[in-house]
Design a binder for these strands. Structure first.
Lengths: 363, 363
DNA sequence: ACGGCCGCAGCAAGCGCTTTCTATGAGGTA
DNA sequence: TACCTCATAGAAAGCGCTTGCTGCGGCCGT
């Protein structure tokens, strides 16, 4: 039925061992023999049995890339870049060093995240790349740390991309963290410099590192401008809360949250969104209220996804070098690039001031 | 070092066979014994060895989803939907019927497409979903047909999603094809009905089924309106060609191609793009030329990706039910849903007339 | 009360490959 | 010529799991 190594060996009139060695190319085989074997492989249309080979060798050439939402280009871009570095060109046997990247969509679910790690552990994956923000649940964090430790024990290289390093875990080859806090701060500073004082914030889901860091940057800027004082005077933390609404990283959330913000504070002059997708929803909501962007309300996003520049007006946002980060993560996973000192690198976030933000109208 | 089935068996004071049966749950095991085994599994933090298990059982619970470009939401949405149906919740053992979806990014490369199919064949994948348009190269088509036949032989279920069925191949469980031709035709008819006569077309890459079908729909509409006559009079096929430019499915391509079209035919009143992403680039180009949308030039896309409705003006496009199609493909791959009669289903494409198209200006 | 069944657990034979160790012959050296 | 060294190829022992078949008590039927 299915062709096995032994069949190839028989046809090439050599032993199975020799065929294996030809295919793996890590043992001297006479040119003539190799030739004969390769011909047999070709003629029989032989395909290596992955499970058998992984079992015997106790390794595989799979690299897992975990993403929170595959439909979101934020992850797609990173995953694609990583995958480019990891490769995927090979013939019947294993070409040298080439690995195969597979993308696993967790949908943001912690269970699924662990499930996929288990799968990859099962498959003895060569490396795992975790992209995007992490959930800040102590239980889940502990489970992840433990799981990653076991993976590392088994020889799997673990790389984080766009995710802060795990506390006291030495299982990780490298962590590339985006400077979400700094980016968030600079974005709000830009708004403040334009003269805005009443700034609404459509935040991402609670308990995500990305959400928290961006929000912290925002608040830091507000506080530095002395605006936290105003809050304190005018009603303490509730006031601050009232200008922040949480929701998923979706357009719809941006739309609804912005309507809500506008209802709570009609005198808002700017809305900062958790990311560009959310910002698009915010724009729609602002327009629906008959307000103009940026004359009446400024809107800003985060990430600088490709479509941000095409929004009308072009979206002010914070550029994250997603492609570069993904590619670097890919190289780290392959062991092609040396890890940064301490295994941790912070990736700069650059403010992209565009047309969707302007000074507030003077009433 | 690593915990094996045997270790678990020893701790639970049963035979390895029993542990295996508890984990796979397809053989009667006394409740008390099962309990003991599960406890041992938990205590030892045991993880099944995937390769070993796949080898022995000659199957695996992996489902591969091949996509052309993971950074493109077009694919992300389908893949995400399919993955939702396929699941990914399971404990240490294999929960009943649950499979694990992995996404493979071919980047549009035929070699990589085959490589991934080989990988999945190697892994004895339970099913494979191929999304998006196919390459129309006879050599590659033949290779794919052969490869899919072998996969099917080995028991892998093959589902096509958004891709036309392969000629004379019975390897396929089902093919869900989008009505790209019909959608393209209706879109151009809409433009013609508005009064447009000079319509530019920014097409996708050559030799892709999707590109060709959409283009055929466009031409069919033009011909039906008697506009092919005008062409014939005014310079035969070259004229028709001159209003069509090919390029990749990227924003940049849309931008450049539109500038080129405007140069060739300054009297153009409408531009149809291969998809929404390309349309965004087209919009940018039109604006850069100082032209207004839709007053001076109408622009239309295809796919109705989430951001299409957020473009300003909102983009006229053709809606493809990507999520539904992906989900259905997922169910077909799981065997949860009966294949359509003949294994082939055409999925309707709906015209979404929005603000980016309007009657041409009367000069 | 005895044979037959049935429910449950164990034995052992692989699944197809990798890899260590051993065998063999050719070529070089003293 | 006898001995030693390489360079290659083969033999065989698993890798960790699944599963057909066997074995063993206890319960039922008559």
């Amino acid at each position: 039925m299915t062709v096995t190594l032994a069949d190839v060996a028989a046809r090439a009139r050599v032993s199975p061992a020799t065929v294996s060695r030809v295919l793996n190319g890590n043992y001297p085989v006479a040119a003539a023999t190799r030739e004969r074997v390769l011909r047999a492989v070709d003629e029989l249309d032989y395909v290596l049995n992955g499970p058998a080979s992984s079992l015997a060798a106790a390794t595989s050439d799979l690299v897992g890339i975990l993403v929170n939402d595959i439909a979101d280009p934020f992850f797609g871009i990173m995953a694609g870049a990583a995958q480019t570095e990891i490769g995927g060109q090979e013939g019947t046997g294993r070409a040298g060093g080439e690995k195969l990247a597979i993308v696993c969509n967790t949908g943001g679910s912690p269970e699924r995240e662990l499930t996929y790690l288990t799968l990859l552990q099962r498959q003895r994956a060569a490396a795992v790349i975790l992209t995007g923000g992490a959930l800040e649940d102590p239980r889940h964090t502990a489970a992840m740390t433990a799981k990653l430790a076991r993976l590392a024990d088994a020889g799997t290289r673990v790389v984080l991309c766009g995710r802060p390093p795990l506390p006291e875990s030495d299982a990780i080859v490298a962590a590339l963290a985006f400077d979400n806090r700094g980016g968030g701060r600079r974005l709000t500073e830009h708004l403040l410099a334009l003269g805005h004082r009443r700034v609404g914030y459509v935040a991402g889901p609670l308990e995500r590192t990305t959400t928290r860091h961006r929000l912290e940057g925002h608040w830091a800027a507000m506080a530095a401008a002395g605006l936290s004082e105003e809050w304190r005077a005018g009603g303490a933390a509730e006031e601050r809360e009232s200008l922040t609404v949480h929701g998923p990283y979706t357009r719809r959330s941006g739309y609804e949250a912005t309507l809500e913000l506008l209802r709570r504070a009609p005198d808002l002059t700017a809305v900062v969104a958790a990311n560009d997708t959310v910002a698009l929803g915010a724009c729609a909501a602002v327009r629906e209220q008959g307000l103009r962007i940026p004359q009446d309300v400024s809107v800003a996003g985060f990430d600088d996804l490709p479509f941000a520049v095409d929004a009308v007006p072009a979206l002010t946002t914070v550029r994250l070098p997603l492609y570069e980060a993904g590619a670097r993560a890919g190289r780290l996973a392959m062991g092609t690039e040396a890890p940064p000192p301490g295994g941790i690198a912070t990736i700069a976030a650059e403010l992209m001031a565009r047309a969707s933000t302007a000074p507030p109208r003077r009433d």
